[in-house]
Design a protein around this nucleic acid. Sequence first.
DNA 1: TCGTGTCTTTACCAAATGGTAAAAAAGTGA
DNA 2: TCACTTTTTTACCATTTGGTAAAGACACGA
Lengths: 208, 208
Amino acid sequence: MTDAATSSTKAPSRIQQRNRILILDAALEVFSRHGYRGATLDQIAKQAGLSKPNILYYFGGKEDIHVTLLNQLMKAWLDPLKEMNPNGDPIKELLGYVHRKLDMALELPRESRLFANEILQGAPRMGPHLSADLKPLFDEQSRVISNWMDAGKIARCDPGHLLFSIWATTQHYADFAAQTEVLLPEDERRQDGASAYLDQLFTKLLTP
Amino acid sequence: MTDAATSSTKAPSRIQQRNRILILDAALEVFSRHGYRGATLDQIAKQAGLSKPNILYYFGGKEDIHVTLLNQLMKAWLDPLKEMNPNGDPIKELLGYVHRKLDMALELPRESRLFANEILQGAPRMGPHLSADLKPLFDEQSRVISNWMDAGKIARCDPGHLLFSIWATTQHYADFAAQTEVLLPEDERRQDGASAYLDQLFTKLLTP
DNA sequence: TCGTGTCTTTACCAAATGGTAAAAAAGTGA
DNA sequence: TCACTTTTTTACCATTTGGTAAAGACACGA
């Protein structure tokens, strides 16, 4: 057999599991910093502590690794949005989403940067995913928000742009960390600062 | 003389001016899409309609082109922030800044993406600039905003995070355009949508 | 302990990449 | 027109990059 990556046949061995995780973790680090074209297999190999040919034993190639990461990412990206409950308290639901997103950005900055890099480059490998997976969910949740507004439970605003602004403000703390770290003195950089501010921002917007 | 880029001696010829602009414009296109490492001189040369050695006649190298772009960018980036007038009407001044930033993002998306790429990668070439140029201005304007709050002219909130959220929401429309273009149907993608929404968002936040 | 399949390394490639040398071409002023 | 400078092209080069072939090393059940 030439490729351990083909999950077609049988269960992966202990070593396979460990090394695939090692590789994906290293690749996440490198891709999220340099983008697809800027990343090299040698960097990934070094970061993973494996040789380059060994990496190509587990994955079909550079693109294969990148695609695998992007697929994993898409799931983690959509889940918090799905958790919004149409029957819950609207403001609580939306603020809950804001905080979930912020926590994700702060805890998984590499994933956030990987996503940002892909979109920055025009989403060459994730365009289809966006249309097929994100778009329907986006439309659905936009309608949920719209209904809340129709019911007078939250102030009226554009639901789409509302979601954009939630994404923008939360992911900013991961994607632009290099900037915020320069601008905010270390003692002001605690999570609660951002958390409290975003709470205030969106509470004021949504309160009727 | 070996390098037309050395502005040391005398005024640049018509051809020099034209070609340097051609190259920088092409480089902006390529760097903003692929980041520093992902961009190649061949791409830039092709985009500029010049040969690679010809490009290296005008610039010392890949890094030189990139640094030149980054320096130009920093100026354009700081100017809108400088325009905030401490003696003007606070809400008007801040909303004005929001709109200036949004206009910039929509009119100069490549510049915005170049900046985003650089920060995403950890600001390896712009860190010093951030500390030396952006930080003082950031601190100064934070203080101006703080004073407005002390005077009771706008609602109290964290000035630093306020600026972050302005940057995040406005630049989102440039940096994540590939995403918004998928999510928003063409007829809803007009600038006024974003403009009106951001106006509402920050007006509500700042109104005491 | 042996054999069979799994994993890793060594030694390579062809193409791409940033960059250079030097000659040819094109301007330019007298 | 001629000398002189500026600009562009052609022909390279060393290194890096994604990827492969094949031989070794290793694990593990019989």
